[in-house]
Amino acid sequence: MATDAQLLEWLCRMGDNALVLGHRMSEWCGHAPVLEEDIALANTALDLIGQTQLWLGLAAEVEGAGRDADALAYRRDVMDFRNLLLVEQPNRDFGHTMMRQFLFDAWHIEMLRALKGHEHEQISAIAEKSLKEVTYHAERSADTVIALGDGTEESHTRMQAALDRLWPYVGEMFLSDDVDRAVCDPAPLREAFDARINAVLAEATLTRPDSDFAHKGGKTGVRHTEHLGHMLAVMQFLPRAYPDAQW
């Protein structure tokens, strides 16, 4: 059974993943390679923002300090963010964006499956609702990785580069500490994750890097990348500049 402090920490991990990745996806708005992709990227972003409201809303409730989801999203600084390093990686090109999405989705879907039916009713309910959305995200990002990996020489090269570049951020998703274990240990999900991505990468004619090196420090908040601060500077500008305003 998780303590309230552990629960709060864990809910921020889930909420911050959705918040930071949702924000990254929203950065594409109006700039995608085709109109249909623009609409699809916005859909993913919208789902993630919705999930953020649920996870951080529950976190604020557990905390019981009078904050709400917006206060958590807009008034914390880098060291209090608990998202994975993977999701704060910048969009770079469309290939990086979709590879990042694919790797995260493959973890996310297994995580939500494991959380469905969790003894904490609200966690179970959020997981169940999110799972519907994330099942679709995972299908879509896998299809895109396959199409772009297999497509042309140029697209293949770009997708392999994206995979190589993002691979060191995969391991952190499966590291677990007391906080994780108190709610849901991600370590056992690795097997299903591997099976899922191996199949997709094979179809995409991409080579899985053999290094197991993993950057860490995102979900513990110990050491984020430099990218997160810039994102927060933009995202939090208004509530920070006009702290008394209602929007």
Binding site: L19, H23, S26, E27, C29, G30, D38, I39, A42, N43, A45, L46, I49, G50, T52, Q53, L56, A69, D70, A73, Y74, V234, M235, F237, L238, P239, A245, W247
Partner: peptide, 19 residues
């Protein structure tokens, strides 16, 4: 302004609109 929307709800509404 999507990346600078001041609340989660405003961000979702604006993003949905532009979509």
């Amino acid at each position: 302004w999507i990346t600078r929307a001041p609340t989660l709800e405003r961000k979702a509404i604006l993003l949905a609109k532009v979509q």
